[in-house]
């Protein structure tokens, strides 16, 4: 759908070429905002990301390519956010650390209490390939909206793993959470998005 980060010439980035840097901003600004939001919350995230970009730009000549550009940038924004959090001495709201909150789709009403069998089984989907789903413009809007209202940590994990395809270990480092917690957050995010697809398949609406 978009040019990959790999297509941006790393040598030009090291030379702080504006065009190459802009391409990087275009592709990674939104995921970086998601990472920042997961750590410092909504109000400080934009500011933290701006600082992270400045820091990244200054340090581009020193970028040695030992990790990917993406991982390097996610680490910069994560460090910037953590440092800001220490300065502000704020605590991220407890709900951000609570993986619950997306459980409706697999809530207690979905299964029989004893035996754990489906009480409300998954419906048949008439669109059963990624290509078919990709053609549905209205569904894309619903998905974008749902991603935007996911709890911050869920959104960050979903974007880092399923969109940016970062390794689980990298995500743990970036967000300073355990791997099992990342897996829980990822599953919950997917369930929320799957619920949207479920409804869309059934009604054509979100």
């Amino acid at each position: 759908m978009t040019d990959s980060i790999d297509s941006i010439d790393q040598e030009r980035l090291r030379q702080q070429d504006h065009q190459a840097f802009e391409a990087l901003v275009s592709q990674l600004h939104r995921p970086m905002v998601s990472v920042a939001r997961a750590i410092v919350g909504d109000s400080l995230a934009e500011e933290v990301v701006q600082e992270a970009w400045v820091s990244a730009y200054r340090n581009l000549p020193k970028f040695e390519g030992r990790s990917s550009v993406k991982t390097w940038l996610f680490t910069i924004v994560s460090n910037e956010a953590k440092s800001r959090l220490r300065k502000e001495k704020r605590l991220v709201a407890l709900e951000d650390f609570n993986p619950e909150g997306s459980g409706d789709y697999l809530g207690p009403d979905r299964f029989f209490r004893f035996g754990g069998h489906w009480k409300v089984p998954p419906p048949d989907w008439h669109m059963d390939s990624p290509d078919q789903l990709l053609e549905e413009k209205h569904l894309q809007k619903c998905i974008d909206h749902t991603v935007s209202i996911l709890p911050p940590q869920q959104r960050a994990v979903f974007i880092l793993r399923d969109i940016e395809q970062q390794a689980l270990a990298e995500i743990c480092n970036i967000l300073e959470v355990t791997e099992s917690y990342v897996r829980v957050l990822l599953h919950r995010a997917r369930m929320k998005l799957m619920q949207v697809i479920d409804r869309y398949q059934e009604t054509g609406e979100c």
């Binding site: 759908m1 990674l28 998905i143 969109i163």
Partner: peptide, 10 residues
């Protein structure tokens, strides 16, 4: 499907 959609640009 979500992976195929790719990243959202700024």
């Amino acid at each position: 499907f979500l992976r195929r959609r790719g990243p959202l640009r700024a």
